[in-house]
Write a protein that binds this DNA or RNA. Sequence first.
DNA 1: TCGATTTCGAGCAAAAGCGAACGTAAACGA
DNA 2: TCGTTTACGTTCGCTTTTGCTCGAAATCGA
Lengths: 253, 253
Amino acid sequence: MSQTFRHPDILKIAQREGKVTVEGLAEHFGVTLQTIRRDLTELAEANKLERVHGGAILPSGTTNIEYDERRNLNQTAKLAMARACAAQIPEGCSVFLNIGTSTEAVARELLHHRDLMVVTNNMNIANILVDNTDCQIIVTGGALRRSDGGLVGNITIDTIRQFKFDIAVIGCSAMDEDGDLLDFDIQEVGVSQTIIAQSRKCFLVADHSKFSRTAPARIASMRALSTVFTDLPLPRELAERCATWGTQIVLVD
Amino acid sequence: MSQTFRHPDILKIAQREGKVTVEGLAEHFGVTLQTIRRDLTELAEANKLERVHGGAILPSGTTNIEYDERRNLNQTAKLAMARACAAQIPEGCSVFLNIGTSTEAVARELLHHRDLMVVTNNMNIANILVDNTDCQIIVTGGALRRSDGGLVGNITIDTIRQFKFDIAVIGCSAMDEDGDLLDFDIQEVGVSQTIIAQSRKCFLVADHSKFSRTAPARIASMRALSTVFTDLPLPRELAERCATWGTQIVLVD
DNA sequence: TCGATTTCGAGCAAAAGCGAACGTAAACGA
DNA sequence: TCGTTTACGTTCGCTTTTGCTCGAAATCGA
């Protein structure tokens, strides 16, 4: 990783002006456009700047691109799963909605439910359900994770322990053939486990892409779930296990 | 996904004005109408704006009219007070920011502070400071109040008790002549008291309109404050008391 | 309701900007 | 001293952006 003496200067100018142009910087430093382009490419790779045609701007921050993409992934399936899941959430009950794009889709489908008490550790969900005035929203505390608006950490777990939910809606990063729910993020696992422990029923919303993926941390067995909402049939072995455990599978589309 | 210099600027203008016109932007940037149309289309596709004939507006929904009005009230004074307050918050410290439009203004002035740890019970502040990637954000739990994005209740207080802040920034509904801080909302009073108890220094941000108003619930004496940021001199008697207590008054504008 | 006017979006060509490949020169280390 | 590394400049296709034109759609006024 090369560090030229220009990089700090470029960042300083960007902070002051809000943006920098390739041409302007080339003149300022007395080098060619190509050299500046190389600088900007490196700074963009280090997430210090965001590259645009003709120059660069400060990182937008406002939204996380990766997360936005994830939200748009497989959108129709997510919508259908969310609708099916929301249909099984009766009005007037207490619900926990966990971090994740699938659970956010469920939140959108709950916009017209009445008399809910929704607890969530997901800032996006709180923002979505603000529009449903017939629903009490409780936000768990925690450290805000910029990548997805999630609240995580001990504070989160402590808050969740103070409740008992009728229904919890969770997502996961992957499901393995033994029927274990897996996640990429250790921090999130602790939260998910606490959620399951504090709920009478637990719904999993996860599309088929989770079947063929794996992740390092184990949340729980699917035995702990009441219902799984998904968009393609589970692998046969897994489906049989779920049948034994009494875990219902709801297939949409 | 394409990006241009104009996108962040357009969003900023839209946030300030509430709307943008194709023609106005074309003139502002010195490009043709078609180019602006393309920009607006892209921003609308990314859900940053909502397209209308002749221009674009902010995405509908989440706005609370009454609260928006309150936010716009006495805007210049708020900005100046916020700037003065932020100037007294050193980088690298831990700060609590309470509910209120004035504290939100302070949050906006903290967007370029580095290495802060910000704890807040105000969803709006969390949303604002997401853009400062050099700042850890911790959200207290609590029941979400739709009117102002505040988190209140026992959960909030319990979370706050787990911290000790270098600086707390609070607002209030009124200040009476005896030097007491008052609030309309009983729930919020408990939170404010806890905040004061858990902080080494406490800053109050309150414009002159609070002098001539009254409210039913007592938060604390101004003796508990380190500094008051305001826009007009305090009534003489109150100023004298503050001098005795060692409560500094910072007058802006 | 029906035209007149404005605004919109698609298609196309010109211009601006881009990255890759290659060459040169200075700095560096043994 | 020589080979290696690193930074920078130059050239050249390729991509993206932009402005223009034109028919369609939306809005406005009567």
